[in-house]
Design a protein around this nucleic acid. Structure first.
Lengths: 364, 364
DNA sequence: CCTAGGATTGAGACCGGACTCACATCGATT
DNA sequence: AATCGATGTGAGTCCGGTCTCAATCCTAGG
């Protein structure tokens, strides 16, 4: 019986050497394809290896080359297609260069992230790609840099850390899309994000995420440019699971001065927001306008199709992995990393606010 | 400057031992928390380790314990939320037991899968979770078993391989949902799948995927039970990217005897099918009925919301990881692994076929 | 005061490759 | 025929931990 249950001892170079009747050193050379080996020896060794089904122990190899051919990836939520797609870009790129990927999911918890980074470092990955949960508390990332191992940031920036960062420039697109909403007549524009925060949002607050900060800055600038005041009361953080998103949405649409447009900061939130709007018996865009980050295929299937901010997520993954591998291989940093720009794709979910005339009067 | 660019030599047990003025063996014992160590020594070693920021080299550790605390996961497409969610189940479970996950994406290519399995084995993962691209060609998986390392199958079965398999039982739900469509009056029921095949489908054909086989069997049984013949010409394989899905869909809806209902075999296909239907100016379910596998949140947002076959994907990931870890730790196989059952969730995308009366005449 | 037996301790082997170094071997050079 | 550089080759070290084993230290029992 070939599967005897117990883990059978692995075949090693020494075994192959013995079978081929050469020294361990020669066998290793023939197998590792380095050094000088006569044709005769090489043949015998290779034949013996084949016969014994020899497979090198990568652990042992890594140990004295100091390279594991593995990169570690730390993301907040692999279930989120945003990261799924970025991950695809990373793994595709890694595979091309012969690297493997260890993935750790942090649930956007800083403690888990600190842990993840340490584990990967202990496993001696050749480099790390991290989508930091916090752009502010970055001491664990600084440790990576101190360990001398390459680090590349994905999707979000981190303060005071000179690591290559591959993220979409959010300020501009946020400004642009807010302008678009304002032009459509909206003043009560809400923004819903998963970002965790102990305090409710207020203007000028320091946020943990560069992404969200940039987006809010963009929104605010757009309002200011129009001589308007940004309604900070419509910025809602801590939108966690689907239920809390719905609750927040219903809250935004309720009361004396409801939101007339809602921006969802990611696809998961978007699902909750749209569902809540539908459940409230309201329709898009007649009653509420809607705008979301990330252009997933399903956004074209709703009625109306949704207006979105498309981000080159797959490319972002590719760019990050490419840069990391370049660093690992010690090559010079490429002069220009491709610009990762987001685009506003206007479909059908943004229209004029319900009380359009009243508002434009107020605005004019 | 702390980051001097060059990889600085790692601190080892020997370094700690020297600093604490004890032997390497004692330092190792204190750090590894095994064997007998006096309080005095332990304190000094721990202090020295702290001081030097010692971090164990997991590679070295793995090498002589023979355990890497890592499991390998091989899936076809991590970008597909189906796997994204399963992956989440796996990583969540792995983390709880102190295991890490190496992920390899195969693009559903057998060659890539063979390679992936070998790489992971070479890296000495403690066990493997594989969603096999083919249920028929499984020699590479048999090799895993022969290596003595635990293997668990995810999402799909594999012939002639006694590995624990965690997949939803497809025959039953497929039968049930086809019956449902037939009851609604449909006879021309199409099935669209990504499954690669050199030949177009015909009844009784041996397929590479247990999943798809089971589903088709279910469909066929449902037809037979009703004394009807399953329209094999409406089974379409090789639906790859979005474009080919659309082309297939339009083809199905065209011609003298078009499909009146379409079953999409996964979420990615569903997107293409629904989009193609919309582009054709047809409406669901008035012109075509639609049914899909996997209950993603967005299926509730379309108009009408889509009728789906929900699969407990996250639980499947958990179950697979749990079983694998159990095997790794050498514990007895749990008597009962939880049943992974799919459910038909009736929403709004299935109705009577357009020429209902004509068809029911033909059927009666 | 002496000794058996458990608690500590250090030297060194070992895991499985990669690689250094000293020692052949051999055809080519002069 | 003596010499030289280019291969070939094997013994042995190293990577950074774990673990065995024999030696040493203590302390309680006699």
């Amino acid at each position: 019986m070939s599967t005897d249950g117990s883990r059978r001892r692995d075949v090693t170079v020494a075994d192959v050497a013995k079978a081929a009747q050469v020294s361990k050193a020669q066998a290793a050379r023939a197998l590792g394809n380095y050094g000088a080996v006569s044709d005769d020896v090489r043949e015998r060794v290779l034949a013996a290896a084949e016969e014994l089904e020899y497979r090198p122990n990568e652990l042992a190899r890594s140990m004295n080359t100091g390279k594991s051919n593995t990169i570690g990836v730390v993301v907040g939520d692999i279930e989120n297609p945003h990261f799924g797609l970025a991950m695809r870009g990373i793994t595709d790129t890694a595979k091309k260069s012969g690297f493997n990927v260890i993935l750790i999911n942090t649930d956007e918890e800083r403690a888990a992230e600190v842990d993840a980074v340490r584990v990967l470092l202990d496993k001696r990955v050749d480099g790390l790609i991290v989508a930091p949960a916090s752009s502010v508390e970055t001491s664990h990332l600084r440790q990576v840099r101190e360990s001398g191992r390459p680090l590349v940031l994905l999707d979000r920036a981190a303060e005071g850390l000179d690591a290559e960062t591959f993220a979409v420039e959010m300020g501009g697109i946020s400004y642009e899309s807010t302008k678009y909403l304002i032009k459509a007549g909206h003043r009560r524009i809400a923004f819903v994000s998963t970002l965790k925060s102990d305090l409710p949002y207020e203007e000028g607050m320091v946020l943990d995420s560069s992404q969200i900060s940039d987006r809010l800055d963009g929104i605010q600038r757009a309002f200011e440019d129009e001589g308007l005041t940004h309604p900070a009361d419509l910025v809602r953080l801590n939108a966690g699971d689907s239920e809390s998103v719905k609750k927040i949405t219903k809250d935004l649409l309720d009361g004396p001065s409801p939101a007339t447009a809602i921006i969802a900061s990611d696809g998961l939130i978007a699902l909750g927001v749209v569902e809540a709007i539908q459940e409230s018996g309201l329709s898009i865009p007649a009653d509420v306008s809607f705008l979301m980050y990330d252009d997933f295929a399903w956004t074209r299937l709703t009625t109306p199709p949704l207006t979105v901010i498309a981000q080159p997520v797959y490319d972002m993954g590719i760019a990050a992995a490419t840069a990391l591998i370049r660093q690992i291989e010690g090559r010079k940093s490429a002069a220009s990393s491709p610009e990762l720009v987001a685009r506003l794709i206007q479909r059908g979910s943004v229209g004029a606010p319900k009380g359009a005339d009243v508002l434009s009067q107020a605005g004019g």
